[in-house]
């Protein structure tokens, strides 16, 4: 069995009255590339901070390389990205990398690291004089400075142009190809699709889905079919139902089939609309719906 590098077991984290994570569990095994998806406030950063030892769970257990992430020794094989806004502006790029690398027992070679992320040309520049995109790339490169086995990347490509984003993706893929594990948070579906093999979706602090990329992509293809009808028959492929005054919203993976069946059933309806759901909507709707209630009964 593959080694488990990090684990959150039934973890709850509260900030005052706000529940940021609600009995969430996650296992990260060696060599995995996991995408952590979710809307703002879903608990992604909280989970990352717990795994990095910056925060303590209110209840539950967090383990990193067989111990608590609060113990510095457990973080020797962990890499993390700082927020680019906070990089020390007076240091040169190479100095900043050297400074971070000096904390690790077997760091990556600095020049090789800069090369891998296309930063060799910035080696002697002061960080304060760099563009936002350049700082972002340095911040991501720093996560790899200590030659980690697990890297936590919190929104690594936010604010980058397409080219820089692809360059970073290549860097992350190379690391993963060499056996490294990655937990990547993003609210860009595209980014998760480009990189991740396994996808975890968080919403309101709970795990809404934890599956392969293909399976989760299937769930995301959900459409919302809205109509006004007094009575609806039982329809195939309905994943969830919401009612809003006289409007009924049906969630389905196959809107074409649903509409065909609706017409064939001969029930009167009006104001038919079909819209793609947002990622967030799809997941919240799917998990909120009781599986037994997927078939539509009599209208309210």
């Amino acid at each position: 069995m593959t080694e488990t590098l990090a684990q959150a077991i039934e973890v709850t984290r509260r900030y005052g009255d706000v529940v940021a994570l609600d009995t969430t569990s996650l296992d990260i095994r060696a060599g995995e590339l996991i995408g952590l998806l979710g809307p703002n406030g879903a608990g992604k950063s909280t989970l990352v901070n717990l795994l990095a030892g910056l925060r303590r769970p209110t209840s539950g257990t967090v383990r990193l390389f067989g111990g608590t992430p609060r113990d510095p020794a457990r973080r020797r094989e962990l890499g993390m990205t700082p927020q680019d806004t906070g990089l020390p502006s007076t240091l040169r790029v190479r100095e900043c990398v050297d400074f971070v690398a000096a904390h690790f027992p077997a760091p990556a070679g600095r020049d090789e690291l800069l090369d891998r992320f296309g930063l060799s040309g910035l080696r002697d520049r002061q960080i304060g004089g760099l563009s936002g995109g350049q700082k972002r790339r340095i911040a991501v490169a720093l996560a790899f400075a200590g030659n980690p086995r697990l890297v936590l990347l919190d929104e690594p490509t936010t604010g980058l142009d397409v080219e820089a984003r692809r360059a970073l993706w290549d860097g992350i893929r190379d690391y993963h190809a060499g056996g490294g594990a990655v937990l990547l948070t993003s609210h860009y579906l595209e980014e998760i699709e480009a990189l991740a093999e396994r996808v975890v979706v968080l919403g309101h602090g709970r795990t809404l889905a934890d599956d392969t990329l293909e399976a989760v992509r299937g769930m995301v293809g959900v459409r919302r079919v809205s109509l006004t009808a007094a009575h609806l028959p039982e329809l195939p492929g309905v994943l969830g139902v919401e009612r809003e005054e006289e409007r009924t919203h049906l969630l389905t993976a196959d809107a074409d089939l649903l509409v065909r069946e609706l017409v064939l059933a001969g029930v009167p309806f009006s104001g038919l609309e079909i819209r793609p759901t947002t990622l967030e909507e799809a997941f919240l709707a799917i998990t909120a719906a009781d599986p037994g209630a997927a078939a539509v009964g009599t209208a309210a």
Partner: peptide, 11 residues
Amino acid sequence: PWDPYLRTLPA
């Protein structure tokens, strides 16, 4: 944010 980042290093 550099300050909390340094706390994630193994020191």
